[in-house]
């Protein structure tokens, strides 16, 4: 896909691209397109084109810095080639892996959030308190208001950090829930067999 705009030299978007580059290097978190447009004080379409230009310049295999669309915005990260070196100097955001309980809890919050601890416990069949606390501490989920009513339980949702760590542009990139095997036909048959015995 060769666009004339991506020809590097004397590109009319060069100045804008340099500005965007600067904004992205200062940012501590992914910058949404609207913020880039506002900060660069330029036209939205031109900003998108300039970002395309930068994505090409900062891509895996070509640069040590990679520009990516993640967590609803644009951000720089280290290239994968540099991961080993980075690992010597910096800790990964999720250095220690997540336990089965944490992963299931995280999945529930990602798909059903904002969701309360009792709701998580209901689905998993065990209390979710320590898993939730651990995920909050790691910055993967955060509080998002309370359930309606007096003394409503705290609700949780995933954070932009979660999307960044898992390399997701947004939560819509998660596999569709219907596509995940929730197949319990065998169990259903057995349950119904038991039910028949009870009624008989």
């Amino acid at each position: 896909m060769e666009r004339p705009l991506r020809l590097v030299t004397a590109n009319p978007l060069d100045q804008l691209a340099r500005t965007l580059e600067a904004l992205l290097v200062v940012a501590g978190a992914p910058l949404p397109l609207e913020e880039l447009v506002a900060a660069a004080d330029d036209d939205g379409e031109r900003v998108e084109m300039a970002l395309g230009l930068l994505s090409e310049r900062y891509r895996e295999g070509r640069s040590g810095i990679v520009l990516e669309q993640v967590a609803g915005g644009w951000a720089f990260r280290a290239s994968r080639d540099a991961a080993v070196a980075c690992g010597r100097l910096f800790e990964r955001p999720v250095q220690r892996g997540l336990s089965q309980a944490s992963l299931e809890t995280l999945a529930i919050v990602a798909y059903l959030g904002p969701v309360t601890r009792p709701e998580i416990a209901r689905i998993r069949g065990v209390a979710a308190d320590s898993a939730v606390a651990g995920l909050v501490e790691r910055g993967l989920i955060s509080e998002a208001g309370r359930d309606d009513g007096v003394g409503g339980a705290v609700k949780y949702r995933t954070t932009p950090m979660f999307e960044r760590v898992f390399g997701l542009e947004s939560l819509s990139q998660l596999p569709r829930l219907d596509d995940l095997a929730g197949d319990v036909d065998d169990l259903r048959e057995r349950l119904h067999a038991v039910a028949e015995q009870r009624t008989a």
Binding site: E104, A107, G182
Partner: peptide, 9 residues
């Protein structure tokens, strides 16, 4: 399904 999703994650 949630268990599967956890596996995917």
């Amino acid at each position: 399904r949630m268990k599967e999703a956890g596996g995917w994650l």
